[in-house]
Design a protein around this nucleic acid. Sequence first.
DNA 1: GTCTATAGTTAGATAGAC
DNA 2: GTCTATCTAACTATAGAC
Lengths: 218, 218
Amino acid sequence: MSTKDKIIQTSIALFNQHGERAITTNHIASEMGISPGNLYYHFKNKEDILRNIFSLYKNHLKDNFIPMDKKQDVMAQLAGYLDSLVELMWRFNFFYNNLTDILSRDNELKAQYLEQQAQLLEQVAAVIVGLKYAEVIEIDDSDIVELAHMVKLTVSFWTPYVKAHSEDGRLSKQDIFGGIVKVILLFKPYAKGAGLDQLKELQQEYINKQLDVEQAVA
Amino acid sequence: MSTKDKIIQTSIALFNQHGERAITTNHIASEMGISPGNLYYHFKNKEDILRNIFSLYKNHLKDNFIPMDKKQDVMAQLAGYLDSLVELMWRFNFFYNNLTDILSRDNELKAQYLEQQAQLLEQVAAVIVGLKYAEVIEIDDSDIVELAHMVKLTVSFWTPYVKAHSEDGRLSKQDIFGGIVKVILLFKPYAKGAGLDQLKELQQEYINKQLDVEQAVA
DNA sequence: GTCTATAGTTAGATAGAC
DNA sequence: GTCTATCTAACTATAGAC
């Protein structure tokens, strides 16, 4: 791995462990065993590192949140989206913990974030519409965007919520599954008939993952 | 107002405007026209100020989130709780924006927060139970705590969510009403019959407040 | 591409006079 | 209770050698 990539990966790991605020460029360099000067050869400043991390975040969503295929099984696609969200919430959890601060310090990043989130809202709304047309759920059209916001809010802030409620402020991968259980909870009261049973089953899968002690804490 | 109280009020105002991270003890003193030394006469350090602000937060909830009276109108009591949440979300919005950081820096505050939030969870669950017994909503007992968590998550992180999505990163009091609309949205799909109509009406009230340009931006 | 050394800045906090 | 002066520590970033 190139030094540049290693700086990005080390930064993500340290930010997730200790929080973006607590980690300085010196900490990152020190953890890697390189000099601060070398870090600044590869990145203009800390914001430059954060922008590169955000690119990874964007790409993850671009690669995994592809539009629904109406000919395929809707529930299987939903499960795929939820799995990709698990990865997102785990890998970039530091980002949500300091979202307001990070965005307020960098207007360019903020602009990118706004654009990306607007697109994500569309995509989430499209999934809800897909569930509606597949008759998994029944929902007024006027509530679709509102529900999409709630899904986004939950995905974004589940990890800070868990951290705030854990004694040591730490997060395990299993905690993430609890967030997915909450996302499914958002859909569940709109479900009917066979759709309700499917959602309950899917929710139970994530409840099991959440409780599974065998689960690796990567 | 005593200098001590004025420091607390000024801190809240500055933290809400610029974020807790961006505001130093010097900024607070300067804004008040007092010396940094004077500020440190009244407070041991920045965390000491934050603990005092958290006391106000706790007291607000203690005074406004009193247990439901089953003999009184359930919907009226719900409306009262929601109004007190508006105040909470507005007045202490800086706190949620930096929740992870603030709690990770002060173990004593963290302990207080954990205790307070555990109690709040009970109270929110009790309200949901109240809505169920008043037959406003219909919900499985196993979902009540999950839904209570979602209410708490929404109340806590609605303001960071709005800030992250606003061009200038600023928040107006009207934005808060949008969060209450989301809380009601959480209940709505569980509602039935007359209860559904009442919830829709209540939600519409907050939608109107959200859109009302006359609303003061205190 | 990497290092050492360090400049420049700011935040947090204290000492001691009034 | 309030001020001035100041110190320490830490963080960001750069210069210049290798």
